[in-house]
Design a protein around this nucleic acid. Structure first.
Length: 454
DNA sequence: CGGATTTGACCGGCGC
DNA sequence: GCGCCGGTCAAATCCG
């Protein structure tokens, strides 16, 4: 290895080129070293150029100083040995220094390249984020415009659900053992729920898993759900309109714990579903008009469909507040869309507030309700926006269907269900980043009490 | 005993 | 007008 390097140095052209590099790169030390090489080359031109021999001759010329001091003019072999090693080490040192300088240079170049690449990467990330935001906004507008286009046709929530299925990307590829969250804003201006006049449906689904079954469920919910669609005559005559929130949750008990106190006042077996439908009235305060209906889902008995209706006239516990704000947040998402500017303006919610969607609170939804410091119940979530302010006199009834189910899918690993633990990951799983994570955790702790955890 | 639940009767809207 | 259906009422019953 060393011999090879030295023999290369013996090549005049090589030496010159090296010298040139040395002058350009470092100068001083390397140049002096190469000059030594040249002197050796000239002085020993007759000798056969093995590396070692050249080095020896070099040592004889160079080593006048140290060689004489150390060797003291004694034995030639000793005299020649030390200077030879020193010259070699000097040469190696020069080589290493040269190598270092080259590497340093390369490092600088690479550093610049990496910096440039990182800048470009960051730029690209920013662009991708902007494009994704633009696409999301476009999707929302498409959904809402779709809901608007459905007006006048005999459409059902199922239809719009199917379309939303096509339009709404599934974050986890369509199947997964995590939460499915669907949110429906159902606007009806017709006298009857199956009337062809002016029925609008909008559904946003965060996941597309098991859509077949759940589409049917939602269809049934939208079609069978009684009483949610008051007749046109009643709407006109009494200016009365209803906004309802339907929550689908996998609950083992008869009802899910939503933080409110309810009293059962009736039970019916609705047509098309052998499971009885129970009717509850809020008993937190006397005269509270809020009612809810609870019914098992026909396709999946473990799913409990709870429909809230009305506006609480009292503050509610934290759990209900959390649920209300969650639902209302989702509702606010729809309200801020440009397709419903009147509603957006009514609440003073702008598009920019939606961009801060992670923290939209229920209270922001009903600023007109001065006596309410917060939306405090699921029913207020819809109704709070509801009769007093959410709906103008000609406003149709509205219904939110807010479903939370957990579907098992062997293809996807079971995710931890972060009840009360990791609300952030929960929001991510839910695919509803605009839901306040803290409130979502409270909501889910209510929807899925600990005793019901699997 | 008071509150909650059950359950059959009743009411009103709507389609036929 | 009749029947169907969803929603509500209220008496009976249950429960702590």
């Amino acid at each position: 290895m060393e011999a090879m390097d030295l023999s290369l140095k013996m090549d005049p052209s090589e030496g010159k080129s090296k010298e040139g590099e040395g002058e350009e790169d470092n100068g001083g030390e390397l140049v002096s070293g190469d000059n030594h090489d040249r002197e050796v080359e000239e002085g020993c031109s007759d000798e056969v150029g093995s590396g070692v021999e050249v080095a020896t001759a070099e040592a004889e010329e160079i080593g006048g100083d140290e060689g004489e001091e150390e060797g003291g003019g004694g034995d030639g072999s000793f005299h020649l040995h030390v200077p030879q090693q020193e010259s070699r080490s000097k040469y190696e040192l020069n080589e290493l220094q040269e190598e270092m300088s080259r590497i340093r240079e390369e490092n600088n170049v690479l550093k610049k390249f990496v910096d440039q690449t990182m800048k470009e990467y960051c730029d690209l990330q920013m662009r991708v984020a902007l494009i994704q935001q633009a696409n999301d906004a476009t999707d929302r507008q498409n959904l809402l415009s779709l809901a608007g286009n459905l007006s006048g046709e005999q459409t059902t929530a199922c239809n719009s659900t199917e379309k939303s299925k096509e339009m709404t990307p599934s974050p986890s590829g369509g199947n997964g053992d995590d939460l499915e969250l669907s949110l429906m804003l159902q606007t009806t201006t017709t006298g009857r729920k199956d009337s062809p006049i002016g029925r609008q449906g909008m559904i946003m689904s965060s996941k597309g898993s098991h859509l077949g079954n759940r589409l049917e469920e939602r269809c049934k919910m939208a079609r069978v759900d009684p009483g949610g669609v008051p007749s046109l005559s009643s709407l006109v005559s009494s200016n009365r309109s209803k906004t309802r929130v339907s929550v689908r949750a996998r609950v083992e008990g008869a009802t899910m714990n939503d933080g409110c106190q309810w009293r059962k006042y009736g039970q019916k077996i609705a047509k098309g579903n052998p499971c009885p439908r129970a009717y509850y009235r809020c008993t937190v305060a006397s005269g509270c008009p809020v009612r809810k209906q609870v019914q098992r889902c026909l396709e999946d008995m473990s799913i409990l469909i709870t429909t809230y209706e009305g506006t609480h006239n009292h503050p509610l516990p934290v759990g209900a507040t959390a649920m209300a704000s969650t639902a209302s947040t989702a509702a606010s998402f729809m309200l801020v869309d440009s397709s419903v500017p009147s509603l957006s303006n009514q609440y003073g919610i702008s598009g920019s507030s939606l961009s801060n969607q992670y923290g939209i609170s229920g209270s922001s939804l009903n600023p007109s309700l001065g006596h309410h410091s917060q939306i405090s119940s699921p029913s207020v979530a819809n109704g709070g926006a509801g009769r007093s302010s959410y709906i103008n006199p000609s406003d149709p009834s509205r219904e939110f269907i807010f479903g939370l189910t957990r579907i098992h899918d062997p293809e996807h690993p079971i995710k931890q269900f972060p009840i009360g633990n990791s609300s952030d990951s929960l929001s991510a799983q839910m695919g509803f980043p605009w839901i306040n994570p803290t409130k979502s955790a409270a909501l889910l702790s209510n929807l899925f009490p600990t005793k019901d955890e699997h």
